[in-house]
């Protein structure tokens, strides 16, 4: 295990964390503000990837894919909100879970019917291909660096929006004290729609960035959804700051843990045992971490809700 490899894995971890952050950000706000569990959030990630891959296949342009995908996701998100989610705000969590589970089944099957069950190829755009040598002797793909930068930009943008703008202030107030926002006479329906649509756009953007690296296939959103839940539990519901920190932690645990733990175990026990223990233990790592966080801080690391 060389230091270089560790550095590279850490970067990969951060980059995976960026995907997770972009998915979790919308999900945690929807949970915090509307108190709605939306399992179909993973489907937005999948749809974003499919929209983008399709446009790229037609036009060959990554930029065009980006430009068309974002409003398309906004529309998709708003349609889902108006048709299904809106009727669910007053229902209990059980109903929300089942209804949005129905949405997942629908979206996965729709994707399978339209694009087929096979995974869909998506190329890294030419202007972001290639490697840089900023770590000596370890060329690192430019696209992955671009993902990290994009993630940082999105996080910064969200931060500024939520702390500076009026909408952002309402969002923050909503995440910590829902009845108050209603009492302020704000158009709650509109606010919910905007937040939900934005969440869909962010998840779709994550899908677009993940497309060329991970595979674009039906059901690709579900694993990410579960990890996003882990992120939210660790970070605290409704907290963007928590989502940032927890995403990076989970991202690094997922990638670095998977490569280091087996190596670490080999030094501790026979290589045979390590061979079988390694993957098993590293797949459980983040969940054990989550359980530990819950044990000490049942509300997550950065609880947004007070009182």
């Amino acid at each position: 295990m060389s230091l270089l490899l560790l550095l590279e894995q850490t970067l990969n971890g951060i980059q995976f964390g960026v995907f997770l952050f972009m998915i979790s950000a919308g999900l945690t706000l929807v949970l915090g503000i509307m108190n709605v569990v939306n399992l179909a959030h993973g489907s937005f990630y999948m749809l974003g990837a499919y929209y983008a891959a399709t446009i790229m296949a037609w036009t060959g342009s990554f930029i065009l894919a980006l430009v068309i995908m974002l409003p398309a996701m906004l529309i998709t998100g708003i349609v889902v909100e108006v048709l299904v989610l809106r009727t669910m705000y007053e229902r209990d969590h059980m109903d929300q879970v089942l209804a949005t589970f129905g949405l997942i089944l629908f979206f996965n099957e729709a994707v399978r019917m339209i694009w087929g069950a096979e995974s869909m190829p998506m190329d890294i755009p030419a202007f972001l291909s290639g490697h840089v040598d900023f770590i000596p002797d370890a060329p690192y793909p430019i696209f992955r660096i671009a993902i990290i930068i994009a993630g940082l930009l999105v996080a910064a943008l969200l931060y500024v929006m939520i702390t500076r703008s009026r909408t952002g202030m309402l969002i923050r107030a909503g995440a910590s004290n829902r009845p108050m926002v209603g009492a302020l006479g704000v158009n709650i329906r509109m606010l919910y729609m905007v937040v939900f649509g934005m969440g869909a756009v962010l998840a779709g953007f994550s899908g677009l960035m993940a497309g060329p690296i991970l595979s674009v296939e039906p059901g690709m959103g579900e694993d990410m959804l579960i990890l996003a839940f882990v992120v939210i539990v660790i970070g605290g519901i409704g907290s963007i700051r928590g989502a940032v920190v927890a995403s990076i932690i989970v991202g690094i645990f997922e990638t670095v843990g998977r490569s280091i733990l087996p190596a670490l175990l080999t030094q501790l026990m026979s290589s045979d045992a390590a061979q079988s223990m390694g993957p098993a233990m590293s797949s459980m790592l983040i969940y054990i971490f989550m359980a530990a966080v819950l044990f000490f801080r049942p509300e997550g690391l950065f609880p947004a809700r007070t009182g």
Binding site: L31, N35, V37, H93, V97, I226, F229, V230, I232, V233, I237, Y287, M290, A291, L294, P298
Partner: peptide, 10 residues
């Protein structure tokens, strides 16, 4: 919600 998410994740 925590209960749902954690049973799901575990």
């Amino acid at each position: 919600v925590y209960f749902i998410m954690i049973t799901l994740a575990l």
